[in-house]
Amino acid sequence: MKNPLTKQQEQLRGKKVNDMTNQELEIWVQACDKMENWVDVNKARRSWTKSRDEAESELEKRTKN
């Protein structure tokens, strides 16, 4: 099975949410959504959900200031 992430999304894997720019966070949220729907294993799905939630929270925190 081929990974559905774009090259740009794939490059963000392993990068900490705090180290991402706002644009990268938006791209990461999209990647997490895509992967959450793509994976079949519940544990993996939860991991992508958690990562998306962290990215959304960080983005919201930045835009409030």
Results as ranks from 00 to 15, higher is better:
residue 6 T to N: 03
residue 48 W to L: 11
residue 31 A to H: 04
residue 55 A to I: 01
residue 21 T to K: 04
residue 57 S to G: 04
residue 5 L to I: 12
residue 10 E to F: 14
residue 12 L to S: 05
residue 20 M to F: 06
residue 32 C to V: 05
residue 7 K to S: 14
residue 55 A to F: 01
residue 26 E to A: 03
residue 11 Q to L: 15
residue 27 I to C: 01
residue 1 M to C: 06
residue 10 E to I: 06
residue 17 V to Y: 03
residue 44 A to M: 13
residue 26 E to N: 10
residue 44 A to L: 15
residue 43 K to D: 05
residue 31 A to Q: 03
residue 40 D to P: 02
residue 5 L to Q: 10
residue 48 W to N: 10
residue 25 L to Q: 02
residue 44 A to P: 00
residue 23 Q to T: 09
residue 47 S to D: 13
residue 42 N to M: 13
residue 30 Q to W: 00
residue 19 D to Q: 13
residue 2 K to Y: 05
residue 16 K to F: 02
residue 47 S to N: 14
residue 30 Q to D: 10
residue 32 C to T: 10
residue 12 L to F: 09
residue 45 R to M: 14
residue 55 A to K: 01
residue 49 T to L: 14
residue 45 R to C: 05
residue 18 N to F: 01
residue 50 K to W: 05
residue 57 S to H: 09
residue 36 E to S: 13
residue 55 A to T: 01
residue 15 K to Y: 06
residue 26 E to M: 10
residue 16 K to P: 01
residue 58 E to P: 02
residue 35 M to K: 15
residue 22 N to K: 11
residue 35 M to W: 11
residue 13 R to A: 12
residue 30 Q to H: 02
residue 46 R to W: 12
residue 15 K to Q: 13
residue 28 W to T: 04
residue 21 T to S: 15
residue 3 N to R: 09
residue 39 V to A: 05
residue 32 C to P: 05
residue 25 L to K: 02
residue 14 G to C: 08
residue 26 E to Y: 01
residue 32 C to L: 07
residue 38 W to C: 03
residue 16 K to E: 09
residue 8 Q to T: 14
residue 35 M to N: 08
residue 7 K to Q: 15
residue 33 D to E: 11
residue 25 L to E: 01
residue 50 K to F: 06
residue 29 V to T: 07
residue 29 V to K: 07
residue 8 Q to C: 02
residue 40 D to A: 10
residue 35 M to C: 09
residue 58 E to I: 01
residue 51 S to M: 12
residue 32 C to W: 06
residue 9 Q to P: 09
residue 55 A to C: 04
residue 10 E to T: 14
residue 6 T to M: 04
residue 11 Q to G: 12
residue 13 R to G: 07
residue 45 R to K: 15
residue 58 E to T: 04
residue 46 R to T: 11
residue 22 N to V: 06
residue 28 W to R: 10
residue 16 K to C: 00
residue 9 Q to V: 10
residue 40 D to H: 11
residue 20 M to C: 08
residue 45 R to L: 07
residue 14 G to I: 09
residue 8 Q to W: 03
residue 55 A to D: 01
residue 45 R to E: 10
residue 5 L to C: 12
residue 42 N to C: 05
residue 54 E to V: 00
residue 27 I to P: 00
residue 39 V to Y: 03
residue 46 R to S: 12
residue 27 I to G: 00
residue 24 E to P: 05
residue 48 W to V: 05
residue 25 L to P: 00
residue 2 K to L: 08
residue 5 L to H: 12
residue 11 Q to N: 15
residue 21 T to L: 03
residue 2 K to D: 09
residue 17 V to M: 07
residue 11 Q to M: 14
residue 40 D to F: 11
residue 26 E to R: 12
residue 3 N to Q: 09
residue 3 N to A: 04
residue 35 M to R: 12
residue 43 K to A: 10
residue 28 W to K: 06
residue 29 V to D: 04
residue 7 K to R: 14
residue 44 A to E: 15
residue 3 N to S: 13
residue 21 T to Y: 04
residue 34 K to P: 00
